[in-house]
């Protein structure tokens, strides 16, 4: 594996009950880079994210995280990963502090670093004054922040975010995008979404998926001239079905 990449996936294949969800997908992300994974619903984004996060094992292909294989050294590899699934994996009956302590311990954060890591994660996610609050009493936007805080509490090299702004109001969306951009300065971030402006605002590079395959890959700078991201996306994912005006 090339050392400049914090995560490198090669030829990932995954099927569910005979239906091919991911078809030979390869990707790699550098430290300090935000990669946007775009696609319509059912394009295979979440399945790919699940494999990158170690939640599912690919039928074929390999994933290396910080030099460790997710198949051969799963515990070491997963220690370098932070993952926010589409639905935040929260426990409503816990306070924010209790939840983050639990998540930090699951991610093997040492007792010496526990308090400082949690404080740092809370600060980055704007949760400084929410530590004692029950998660069930937080707004959806704040629950999403808690979800992101659990993904960064162990200061992983790679952060995987699956549709982190779905269901949020416009103000919350702006705040979460700003946070993701900040996280992208220190970590490698893989962001799955189907919101095109989000990719333009947050990402350095974009990959478009269709029917489980990567059909396009380019840096965001490629859209400053010529075809817009929207035009490329509609052309590649919908073909001639939608006319672009």
């Amino acid at each position: 594996m090339g050392e400049e990449y914090t995560i490198q996936a090669k030829d990932l294949v995954r099927s569910y009950g005979g239906r091919l969800a991911v078809d030979h997908v390869s990707l790699q992300v550098r430290r300090g880079e935000v990669l946007g994974l775009l696609g319509v619903n059912g394009a295979g984004k979440s399945s790919t994210m699940n494999m990158l996060a170690g939640v599912r094992i690919p039928n074929q292909g390999t994933v290396f995280v910080s030099g460790y294989s997710l198949t051969d050294d799963p515990l070491q590899a997963r220690a370098s990963l932070g993952y926010l699934p589409e639905k935040p994996p929260i426990y409503p009956e816990l306070t924010v502090d209790e939840y983050l302590i639990y998540c930090a311990r699951l991610r093997r954060v040492s007792s010496a670093k526990l308090a400082s890591n949690i404080e740092q994660a809370k600060t980055r996610c704007g949760l400084e004054n929410s530590g004692k609050r029950l998660i069930r009493n937080l707004s959806k936007g704040y629950q999403q922040r808690v979800g992101i805080a659990q993904a960064i509490v162990h200061q992983p090299n790679i952060i995987i975010l699956d549709e982190p702004t779905v269901g949020l109001d416009p103000v919350q969306i702006v705040q979460i995008r700003k946070l993701i951009r900040e996280l992208g300065n220190d970590h490698s971030v893989i962001l799955s979404t189907h919101i095109l402006p989000e990719v333009l605002t947050v990402c350095d590079r974009v990959m478009i998926m269709r029917a489980g395959r990567v059909v396009y890959e380019a840096p965001i700078s490629a859209f400053r001239e010529g075809e817009s991201l929207e035009q490329v996306f509609i052309r590649l994912t919908c073909g001639d079905e939608v006319e672009i005006t």
Binding site: L75, R78, P88, Y91, R108
Partner: peptide
């Protein structure tokens, strides 16, 4: 059901 199983499955825990 709540999706928190993914938190455990993506953590470095056997």
């Amino acid at each position: 059901r709540s999706g928190s199983l993914k938190l455990i499955l993506s953590s470095p825990v056997s």
